[in-house]
C-alpha cells in the first residue's frame, strides 16, 4: 500500500533521515519507535508531503506521490494526526470536523459519521466551543476524529498519546485498536511504549540516528533488541 524507497529527508543543509526502506501492506498497522530526535516526525511529515525529500521515492497505492502536494495525498486517502495536534483554534469543534471532510469531497452533505461521536462523546457535547478552548487531551481526540471523518484508507498517527492523562490514553488506544479490527485502514503509528506497540501493531521499525536499525514482525520480535535503541 505504502512503500518508501531510499528516502532521504532534511531541513535545509542538514539531513535528518536517510536511507529509509519501509513498507506498509493493506490493513497493516506499523509502529515506528525510537528516542526523541531520531527523525520519526520528520519521516511522517515527508510521507504527508509537508517536507519534500532530497532523494528517494514514496509510492502510495501504486502511485508515485513523491512530488505531490499534501492536499493531493489527503484526497488520495492519507489521514494525518500531527504531533502538535494542530487544531484550528478559532473554529468550533464541529467546524474542525467539517474541515476534516474536505479530503473526502463530501462537505456538501456536512454529515459527520455518528460512530465518531461514539468514540469521542466529548466532541458532541462541546460541538460549538472553539477548538482552541479545549484541553490538550480533548484536542487530541478532536485531531484523531478530524482525520477519521473522511474515511482515510491510511492513517499517520504521530505519538497520539503523548502528554495526555491516563484514562484518555486508554480511550485513544481502544479507538486505534477498534479501527484496526473493524475497518481495513492501514496505519503508521509513532509510539514510545513497546508493550502497547506490540499489542496493536503487526510490524515494528526501530529508528536511530535517522535510519532504521531494527525491524521485525511482532510475532518474532525480541524485546532486548528494541530496548537497545530505546534506552537513554
Amino acid at each position: 500500500m505504502l512503500e518508501l524507497e531510499n528516502l532521504e529527508v532534511g531541513y535545509g543543509e542538514s539531513i535528518v533521515v536517510r536511507n529509509i526502506q519501509l513498507k506498509v501492506k493493506e490493513s497493516q498497522v506499523v509502529c515506528i519507535m525510537g528516542r526523541n530526535g531520531v527523525g520519526k516526525t520528520t519521516l511522517l511529515k515527508a510521507i504527508m508531503g509537508i517536507l519534500s525529500p532530497k532523494s528517494g521515492s514514496i509510492l502510495f497505492k501504486n502511485d508515485n506521490i513523491t512530488k505531490k502536494s499534501p492536499s493531493y495525498r489527503a484526497i488520495k486517502g492519507i489521514g494525518y494526526v500531527p504531533q502538535g495536534r494542530e487544531i484550528f483554534p478559532k473554529l468550533s469543534v464541529y467546524e474542525n470536523l467539517l474541515i476534516g471532510l474536505e479530503a473526502s469531497g463530501g462537505t456538501k452533505k456536512n454529515s459527520i459519521r455518528e460512530d465518531i461521536y461514539e468514540y469521542f462523546p466529548i466532541l458532541k457535547e462541546f460541538k460549538n466551543r472553539n477548538g482552541g478552548d479545549l484541553s490538550g487531551g480533548q484536542q487530541q481526540q478532536l485531531a484523531i476524529a478530524r482525520a477519521l471523518v473522511s474515511n482515510p484508507s491510511f492513517l499517520l498517527l504521530d505519538e497520539p498519546t503523548e502528554g495526555i492523562q491516563p484514562n484518555i490514553v486508554a480511550d485513544i488506544q481502544r479507538v486505534i485498536r477498534d479501527i484496526k479490527e473493524k475497518s481495513k485502514t492501514s496505519m503508521i503509528l509513532v509510539e514510545q511504549n513497546l508493550d502497547y506497540a506490540k499489542s496493536v501493531a503487526d510490524y515494528i521499525y526501530v529508528v536511530d540516528h535517522g535510519s532504521i536499525m531494527y525491524e521485525s514482525s511482532v510475532d518474532e520480535i525480541k524485546d532486548e533488541d528494541v530496548y537497545r535503541y530505546l534506552s537513554v
Binding site: S71, A74, F88, E95
Partner: peptide
Amino acid sequence: TTNGRRVRAVMQNRQMAECLGVQT
C-alpha cells in the same frame, strides 16, 4: 458557507488545512 470555513481554516493553520485536503 463552506468556502468561508475553508478560508478561516487556511488563515489559522495553512499547513494543517493543506494536510486535510483543502486546496489552499
